[in-house]
Write a protein that binds this DNA or RNA. Structure first.
Lengths: 221, 221
DNA sequence: GAATGTGAAGGTTTTCACAGCA
DNA sequence: TGCTGTGAAAACCTTCACATTC
């Protein structure tokens, strides 16, 4: 059980990082169920993965387990939080307080993981200045000044596709380096800005494809 | 330009299917911009992919292009719609008319692609029987009878994690074969049921990881 | 000349299998 | 004995490169 993560040369794959999110979630559950340790086999079963996959994923970051025993639940959870950077608060702003936007403001999973939405922006005069779940909605025109003032680190974009690029240009000018985009459009940003897209139709389309084509599942195992 | 898709032996990768969704979206845009044909190079540029990737993806399903010219925008869009199974209407029910749920009811991208949410379910007595955007909310207890009655093919689950599995058990009993799950939990379903998970914290966690670790992007190209 | 379609090469990710340790 | 950690092998996915067609 090493104290801290390995500094790795190799690029970690996106899939590995996404699986860490899953492990984290499951470890929280296991903690509630009073498990003290968990084997890669048990973790794998819960995520529908293979035990080797779990061990390999973790091995990129250090050695967290005990041979013959498994992984200590609480400790591993802490380590993964540290790897993912969710062992601290993130100050988040949300742009576009429409359908999706306001759902996200109340989304429990975000706050549970210390992603704190502390600022809201919209372009609708009726909304600007009003209080939404305890946060006063700012004018979208002031992104460039108010984002740095509020020390925002991550911006969630939930505006219509047609205006998303303009918004993002302002967000980038404000010095933000991480954007979570819900608009169904490919955003252009400088190389040092991370953008992740949340495309909710994609998975529906996958279901549609799978049904029409009787797409085989990954593996019967 | 073959009339219809190849019947392929090989399993198509998830990534390919997800990219088809992207191509479809971009082709819609190109159509609006009055492009008649598009090259794999142009498509790739817009998606930040390589031209070879685009061609390979399409080649799994048939030959849609003309050498020297490119792909006919409208025709290719039609073909992809047919491959993805979105050239028809899907009858969708949504369970859990809370924050996320009600945002999804109004989500334009779903209806644009002919995913029609025609039924709503909730367990809240105050909501049951009331009209939400033109749809009367049904009692979640009646899933098993009302889903088949309404000829639902896809169910979106937007209930709290703690109850998601119970809901899904009923949904499965009702004979549904495709589920889009927004609850942060791994659902157990029989082998012949497709489940896709929409985990909105995952991408935020990725951003967090990327910032903390200065994670390099895929490729500079 | 321009751009597709595709085997083959190259790269990445997953799985295997086993040495090593509690 | 049970289970991790990890090189090596296998599987999978992406890119290359070029013959082919318009």
């Amino acid at each position: 059980m090493e104290p801290t993560a390995k500094l790795s040369k190799k690029r970690i794959s996106e899939s590995t990082i996404h699986r860490l999110s899953l492990y984290y979630r499951t470890l929280s559950l296991l903690e509630k169920e009073n498990y003290e340790t968990v084997s890669s086999k048990e973790l794998a079963k819960r995520e529908k993965l293979t035990p080797a996959q779990v061990r390999k994923d973790l091995s990129f970051f250090g050695t967290f387990g005990t041979r013959g025993l498994g992984y200590p639940v609480i400790e591993l959870k802490k380590q993964i939080a540290s790897i993912l950077g969710i062992d601290r608060q993130w100050r988040v702003a949300l742009v576009g307080v429409g359908n999706i936007g306001s759902a996200l403001v109340s989304y429990k999973e975000f706050s549970r993981q210390d992603f704190h939405i502390v600022k809201l922006f919209d372009n609708d005069q009726r909304k600007i200045g009003s209080n939404h779940k305890g946060i006063v909605i700012s004018d979208i025109k002031n992104l460039e000044t108010e984002l740095p003032e509020a020390k925002i680190e991550i911006v969630i974009v939930a505006v219509p596709a047609t205006v998303a690029q303009y918004i993002v240009d302002d967000v980038v000018k404000a010095g933000i380096k991480a954007i979570l985009n819900f608009a169904p459009v490919n955003l252009k940003v400088p190389d040092d800005v991370y953008v992740r897209n949340e495309n909710m139709s994609m998975e529906l389309e996958y279901l549609s494809f799978a049904m029409v084509n009787e797409h085989p599942k990954k593996k019967v195992k």
